[in-house]
Nucleic acid binder design. Structure first.
Lengths: 194, 194
DNA sequence: GACCTGGTTGACAGACCGGTCAACCATCCG
DNA sequence: CGGATGGTTGACCGGTCTGTCAACCAGGTC
């Protein structure tokens, strides 16, 4: 399953077959199908794995910044996702993209069940971010007229979009946080940003 | 080829086979392979098709706003891409995503040639937007400290990301321009926006 | 009519895909 | 020892995928 996550990231869902996953993990295919009802269920499990890791990482990033400034925690989260991507970049030697985003783009139109699963993941993520943005709004850190819920969505979209651009442009993961920071700052009160 | 574009959008590259495209277009497969060396070359042609349409649309959106305000033209472009998506939505009955983004996400890691082709498309797009953003900067419409080149990239990323979120969240294409407008406005001088 | 050329056709190849299955094996329990 | 139980294995199935090929056909030219 760890190897499946690796392969799906390095290539794509369609591009790696069950056979390949099994061989890479030194497992016989029959044995695989004893534990997973189908390939798409494996993907589901992989998603859950990534989700767990991501939530932990986000909590950590939020916690080390204390309870004080919601804005600081937003920035910390931006850095955290950037670091995750840089970690992937080191591991694979190239930019591999967001585990959710990749599968979402590839399977949203074909695999109903997986699609549903991914939708809840994104909703959860967006919810977490939205709470933080509302905190920031409550602390009067946001520009007037900036909708905190929309901001949460914008930030996730920004991350996903930058990943896609970075992947197609062969650029590095290091520039992703920069864009996120700029988007965050641009939504803050004048003079309150970086 | 028109039908190929349709099918790739409605489902995905991997999900529709050459057989299916041929049948839908009432063409025999052997005949198809007389004109296209491979399936991925068909995809390349499809991309070019979309690119041509997009450039035309963007030029049009920019032109109707005159040469005056670069900011107004940025907003017009945001609306234009939103309208394109809403057009797709009407045509297919669901959100199908950006033709470039979809293929990029699916094939960036597997098909080298196609990947290269997509990269130039995105570069072109980003270049066009960057020129506009620099105009806006020259007109002192941007916030101090806002990098116009980065802004161009941010806007494309925002569009791609919103599309992905909308696709996975079953939300409508109508909300995409709203996010783009907010991102644009947030980068403008205080009080100069919507 | 002979010939060539650009295009068409349907049958086919070969690989690979996700998924199945019956036999098999190790371990524990009585 | 006999028998469940939980897990393993490799052979195999049917379908689908991209891509190929030799025969064929219409139109123009000499």
């Amino acid at each position: 399953m760890r190897t499946a996550a690796r392969l799906f990231l390095a290539r794509s869902y369609h591009a790696v077959g069950v056979d390949e996953v099994c061989e890479a993990a030194d497992v016989r295919k029959g044995s695989f199908y004893y534990f997973f009802r189908s390939k798409s269920e494996l993907a589901k499990a992989v998603i859950d794995r990534h989700a767990l890791a991501l939530w932990a990482r986000l909590d950590e990033a939020g916690a080390t910044e204390g309870e004080g400034s919601a804005v600081a925690r937003l920035h910390a989260i931006a850095d955290a996702v950037g670091e995750i991507q840089q970690g992937f970049e080191r591991q694979f030697g190239k930019l591999v993209g967001c585990p959710f985003g990749n599968l979402a783009a590839e399977l949203a139109t074909t695999d109903e069940a997986l699609y549903e699963h991914l939708a809840t993941m994104f909703a959860e993520w967006e919810g977490r971010l939205a709470a933080l943005c509302r905190d920031a709004a409550a602390q009067h850190a946001l520009r007037p007229g900036a909708d905190p819920d929309l901001l949460a969505r914008i930030l996730i979209a920004q991350f996903q979009g930058m990943i896609l651009l970075a992947k197609t442009g062969r650029s590095s993961a290091a520039e992703i946080p920069a864009a996120l920071h700029q988007v965050i700052d641009s939504h803050l009160m004048e003079g309150a940003g970086a």
